[in-house]
Amino acid sequence: MELTNFIAGLINDGKVKVVPELLAFEAEDLRLATIHLQQYYEDDIQEMPAAAPSFDENAALWAARYLYTAVQFILLRNLDETTMQEHLLPYSGELTPAAMYSADLTLRYLPDLFDLAKGLSPNDPLVKLMKETAQLWPFSSAGIPMSENTDLSVIFSHASLKQAYIDRIITARNLHKCQQPDCYPLVLEALGAYAADLWPQFEPSFND
């Protein structure tokens, strides 16, 4: 029940445990992990604006496994790049709003993994791989600096995801991201006439 316990720990108290070797997850573990993710989804959508995207079981499970394995690779430094690429596979399904949000249930902790991996070299294959993943899943990496070429079309195609993404940028006080042409008008609309009170640093950056 490694993956199930990992998800439960992540959701309940933010503390996780991984086994020190790369083993395949048991079928029962995957089944229970999916139930946990579904339950987490039901709770999480209560905080989502408007009607949240539906639950995509495959994307949710892929993200949980990816995160679990990434933590293992941060801790197990004896594993080579090839092994890493074999185990940290990208998502093979279609990138829909449902997939974006369902994967985010666990991928939202990916930025925290960068903190965990900050002792590693920026050129470390694991760091590069995680950055690529963060780039592909921008909804989960709203709070961290990313390339300006990030594709936000999936997020902006869904009203709930779009609002939640802008919320995250503002919560993270990410001035760089809110300056992106797609985001700026939405951030401006969210702050309205209260920008000076709600985010005092916001306006000056645009007057520079």
């Binding site: 604006p49 408007a50 009203a159 609002q163 802008i166 919320d167 503002i170 919560t171 609309e189 969210a190 702050l191 309205g192 209260y194 709600l198 985010w199």
Partner: peptide, 8 residues
């Protein structure tokens, strides 16, 4: 509340 920005 359903659609308002979180910051508000």
């Amino acid at each position: 509340v359903s659609t308002a920005p979180l910051v508000r």
